[in-house]
Write a protein that binds this DNA or RNA. Sequence first.
DNA 1: ATTCCACTTTACGTTAACGTAAGATACTTT
DNA 2: AAAGTATCTTACGTTAACGTAAAGTGGAAT
Lengths: 139, 139
Amino acid sequence: MQAQMNQITTFSIGELAREFDITTRSIRFYEDQGLLAPARHGQTRLYTNRDKVRLKLILRGKRLGFSLAETKRLFDLYDADSSSESQLHKILELIDEKKVSLKQQLEDIKVLLVELSNLEDRCRDELLQVTANTTTVQE
Amino acid sequence: MQAQMNQITTFSIGELAREFDITTRSIRFYEDQGLLAPARHGQTRLYTNRDKVRLKLILRGKRLGFSLAETKRLFDLYDADSSSESQLHKILELIDEKKVSLKQQLEDIKVLLVELSNLEDRCRDELLQVTANTTTVQE
DNA sequence: ATTCCACTTTACGTTAACGTAAGATACTTT
DNA sequence: AAAGTATCTTACGTTAACGTAAAGTGGAAT
């Protein structure tokens, strides 16, 4: 029986890049902007599972149109253990802002999805007409 | 009784800018990119209601993280009266792509809203503790 | 007539989020 | 030992979506 192996699985920058289908440049850039802070083995970066989660959150943020700065603010906000009363109020304010704009987005998306479905229907109709014409003409 | 007044209400660029809370620069830029095509009275641009709707759509697109180019594609797509079979298939494909990514966004948002609400609760708890401490200490 | 205001065009400047290339280091494989 | 592969730092380049300033035009008000 071995002593504690301290087996914390880590990932290289290349592995992460492949997994999330982004470039290593991007990952280093996120670090540069203060969104990631991987450990080092010599020069080489070592990413833990926590880093991986962060990266996932960064990309989700991007899909939602968040700037990296915004995502960083949310991270910082999340990391702040405990704060002063005024700080807490500012945090709550920011959370509320985000929630409001996210709800707006939600509405926007629902509307657009309906419109796209309508457009889709119209396209299918037209497609049927076109193919019908083609086949009748063709013979 | 007057003859037909041809009363098509139009808007100046300034009016639109105020109404949508954007700059005239932006509006001209959208035109430059082919997203708007207002009529002219001499040099001056005259925007119809249709233009207004377009502008609204552009801004909604922006809120959803669409690039102007993407929005333009959707416009062009919408305007295309009738097309060849292959064109229609391409359109349907594009629509489907958009729908997929919008549904992804919808999921992302729902998850984030929950997380933000949790964070909000934690903040409120902490806020209660802080204020409780303050009041007891203060006397 | 001149002042004012909204509008116009032209054009250079700016920011975010990387792309891309150059050159160095380190470990592995042949 | 040499070549290959992955990593590193540094740094200039690029694109989208405007910002901003300059200089001119046209109608309305004083």
